[in-house]
């Protein structure tokens, strides 16, 4: 297998890993996929405003700090089974850097077993190869869904 194809497969696996760790609420494993200086942003565009809105922008450290500082209520609110369905449609490797772009749908399943689609959008990711593994330099979540039925500071 060529190195390029190996990288492509690995990046594909990593995008799915981000989703799986969030589904499993393994935030530590999720954050470890980021570089130290990595960043996470949620943006969305509404027809009423000329510029896209930023709904969250945090460095990896800030994200980690925010999760640790979540209130009891915030944990209870976010207590819902999550399932992300991700489709990676672009992997561009350029030496030690790479971009991936994926569409995602996030489903919520409540305690009664009822499932609904919570949000859809795209993950636009920049990766950097550090020693032997790829790490996220930035994830930009572009939300198409703007009416969210549950509000939370947790990454989408």
């Amino acid at each position: 297998m060529s190195e390029d194809i190996a990288d492509q497969l690995e990046l594909n696996r990593l995008v799915h890993a981000t989703a799986r760790y969030l589904d499993d609420r393994d935030f530590q494993a999720y954050l470890e996929l980021y570089r130290e200086e990595g960043s996470y942003t949620i943006v969305t565009k509404a027809p009423e405003l000329p510029e896209p809105m930023v709904w969250m922008q945090r460095s990896r450290a800030e994200l980690s700090e925010r999760i640790d500082a979540m209130s009891e209520q915030e944990w209870e609110i976010a207590e819902v089974e999550q399932t992300r369905v991700v489709s990676v449609d672009l992997v561009e490797v350029n030496g030690g850097e790479a971009n991936t772009s994926s569409s995602f749908a996030l489903y919520h399943t409540g305690e009664e077993g009822l499932t609904s689609c919570y949000a859809v959008g795209r993950y636009d990711d920049c990766w950097e190869k550090a020693t032997d593994s790829w790490k996220l330099l930035s994830r930009r979540v572009e939300l198409k869904t703007r009416q969210l039925s549950m509000l939370s500071p947790l990454p989408i």
Binding site: W55, S71, E74, P153
Partner: peptide
């Protein structure tokens, strides 16, 4: 505030 802020969700 906003969808990811602490108070609105609560």
């Amino acid at each position: 505030w906003g969808p990811t802020g602490i108070n609105l969700a609560e």
